[in-house]
């Protein structure tokens, strides 16, 4: 049993938990950044920028994430290689699209063909992070956009009355004040993000679902030292517990953060805290 649980494959499974956590850790701030950019763009005074921001939010939110995942990574990959190709190989005389093939010069390949495997894997991982960030950035943008509009207007007016410029009002009042309004939406989004990670295997990252399927599938003694029937049920049960526990921990932490943030705020919850104290 102990041997079974420590085969190279199981090590792959354990590693993939780390991969998922790492992905979440990188994606969350990245998505927040995308969301912040999108929300700021959508509020912009410059019309094209505003259209871009609103279009980004509307389109990405309108499409199921799974549809994005199915072609977006490939598209990003091709796009990056094309950009590098244009920069690095200006005197390339062949077509980039040869029939069905996408061919760029060797040094434009990303990563290089002869790069070690871990580079390829981290590149794939980065593409996955970027895709996740773009998708969830749109949702975050929607939340932040709402939150920016929810900041009480009189606070902004007061700031203006103190002689702050538009920029200063934005950075010193609006942005710090909006978080308390954004947090419920963002924490919901965080929970949704956690639950989107089983789709990672679509992005070519060997995640926990990939390994659970691989390990759980029926094995015949010819190809393994540990033959067994269809055990996917048990592996998926493990995943289920992992996700439930992760959700629970997140909920507790987010609750604490919310309590900190509402402290001293002019909201119902803040009022309640003040009274309780």
């Amino acid at each position: 049993m102990a041997c079974y649980l420590t085969t190279g494959k199981h090590m792959g499974l354990y590693w993939s938990f780390g991969t998922v956590l790492l992905l979440l850790a990188i994606t969350a701030p990245a998505a927040l950044a995308f969301g912040f950019g999108g929300a700021s763009a959508a509020r912009s005074k410059i019309a094209p920028l505003r259209w871009f921001g609103k279009g980004y939010i509307a389109i990405v939110r309108g499409v199921p994430d799974i549809a994005f995942f199915l072609f977006f990574v490939l598209a990003l990959d091709i796009f990056f290689e094309w950009v590098r190709h244009e920069i690095k190989c200006p005197d390339w005389d062949q077509e980039i699209w040869q029939g069905n093939d996408f061919v760029v010069c060797d040094i434009a390949k990303l990563p290089m063909n002869n790069a070690p495997q871990w580079v390829h894997e981290s590149y794939g991982f980065l593409l996955a992070v970027l895709t996740f960030a773009i998708v969830f950035g749109a949702f975050a943008a929607n939340v932040l956009y709402g939150a920016m509009r929810a900041v009480p207007h009189n606070q902004l007016e007061t700031a203006e009355a103190y002689g702050m410029s538009r920029r200063q009002v934005y950075w010193r009042i609006l942005v710090p004040q909006m978080w308390v309004f954004a947090l419920p939406g963002l924490s919901n989004l965080w929970l949704v993000l956690i639950k989107a990670t089983p789709l990672l295997f679509l992005l070519g990252v060997e995640d926990i679902v990939y390994w659970a399927r691989e390990l759980g599938g029926a094995k015949t003694p010819r190809f393994t030292d540990y033959p067994h029937g269809d055990w996917r049920m048990w592996y998926f049960l493990g995943l289920l517990i992992f996700y439930l526990a992760f959700t629970r921990v997140s909920e507790i932490v987010l609750d604490r953060v919310m309590r900190k943030l509402t402290h001293g705020q002019a909201t119902l919850a803040g009022e309640a805290q003040r009274k309780a104290a």
Binding site: K195, V209, R232, M233, F236, L240, Y243, L244
Partner: peptide
């Protein structure tokens, strides 16, 4: 609520089918 909100739909489908 916790059970269905806390787990990915993907895994819920799998278990339901089983």
């Amino acid at each position: 609520i916790f059970l269905f909100r806390g787990s990915p739909l993907f895994i819920q489908f799998f278990f339901a089918y089983f």
